[in-house]
């Protein structure tokens, strides 16, 4: 049996800002090479905290109190900082949520796209330029020469997100963490970006952790899904199983709460208070 690419086991964390309140409770999940796993939940579910833990960018106010994050068999949480630096950005990379703020407004796209290639892959300026052009073509940017010379504000939101996807795949990582990458985009652009992430992921055989609050997005792009509430895994499994045959009352209620353009009566059924009470009892809140 080959080990999973990523295996999170018993991960727990507390927030010092909220007086040591737990924000992750014994979270376990694993990810095979090339698999796309959705991390879903409403605000405060802990999905972004897990993403940050994977990238080694947890805020100082968050303290991990237990568990391991095994990436290719090594625990990211106890690894020397120097080894972690070698992995982050190269083996594990990020597609951020907000394409407006993720790029440095004062630097041209070329500089931002080639930093990693030059510093970490040792490419020359010329080689990095050629590679950057290729990457932009791969994410379907027309006129990549112009885009390389552009500053971020000269590009549309969708274009910036394409640049960030190119950057995330630039060093051929094994794992890409996509943190709500389409939340800020119009639906037609969202669809193009989802398709692009799926295509890039397939071509490069990259595993993806896809953080989202949208079960529709999960259905279309994720092989498997982990649903969280208050830092606890509520339900997990293959996407088709979870969506077609949800076991937990909360999963069912969430599905019913979402509006659907093909169903006039959907979207008006709030998650019942009893379900939240059940969740709190199960998790042991108060």
């Amino acid at each position: 049996m080959t080990a999973s690419l990523l295996s999170i086991s018993g991960l727990s964390a507390v927030s010092d800002r909220e007086g040591g309140a737990p924000i992750l409770r014994d979270v376990s999940l694993s990810l095979e090479r090339g698999e796309v796993r959705g991390l879903v939940g409403e605000s405060g579910a802990g999905k972004s905290t897990i993403a940050k833990a994977l990238l080694g960018i947890l805020p100082r106010t968050v303290r991990v109190t237990g568990g391991t994050i095994q990436f290719e068999g090594r625990d990211l949480l106890t690894m020397p900082a120097r080894d972690l630096r070698d992995i982050m950005g190269a083996q594990i990379s990020l597609i951020p949520q907000d394409p407006q703020t993720a790029l440095n407004p004062g630097r041209r796209i070329e500089a931002q796209l080639t930093d990693g290639l030059r510093l970490r892959r040792g490419l020359s300026r010329r080689e990095a330029h050629v590679r950057a052009l290729k990457l932009l073509e791969e994410v379907h940017i027309r006129d990549p020469e112009r885009v390389l010379r552009a500053f971020p504000h000269e590009l549309s939101g969708g274009m910036r997100q394409r640049v960030l996807i190119a950057a995330a795949f630039a060093l051929e990582p094994k794992l890409v963490v996509a943190d709500e990458p389409t939340t800020a985009l119009d639906v037609t652009v969202q669809k193009q970006i989802l398709r692009l992430i799926r295509d890039m992921q397939k071509v490069h055989g990259t595993a993806v952790i896809f953080v989202t609050h949208d079960l529709g997005v999960v259905a279309q792009i994720c092989d498997s899904v982990t649903l969280l509430y208050a830092g606890k895994v509520i339900e997990a499994g293959a996407t088709a199983d979870v969506l077609q045959n949800p076991k937990h009352a909360y999963t069912k209620a969430l599905m019913a709460a979402g509006p659907r353009y093909d169903r006039p009566d959907a979207g008006l059924e709030p998650v019942p208070q009893a379900v939240f009470e059940q969740l709190r009892a199960e998790i042991g809140i108060r």
């Binding site: 639906v187 669809k191 989802l194 529709g216 259905a219 279309q220 969506l243 077609q244 979402g258 659907r260």
Partner: peptide
């Protein structure tokens, strides 16, 4: 372009 929460192979194509 709206993703529905049900499996729809080919939706992304």
């Amino acid at each position: 372009a709206i993703p529905l929460p049900e499996i729809n192979p080919g939706w992304l194509d």
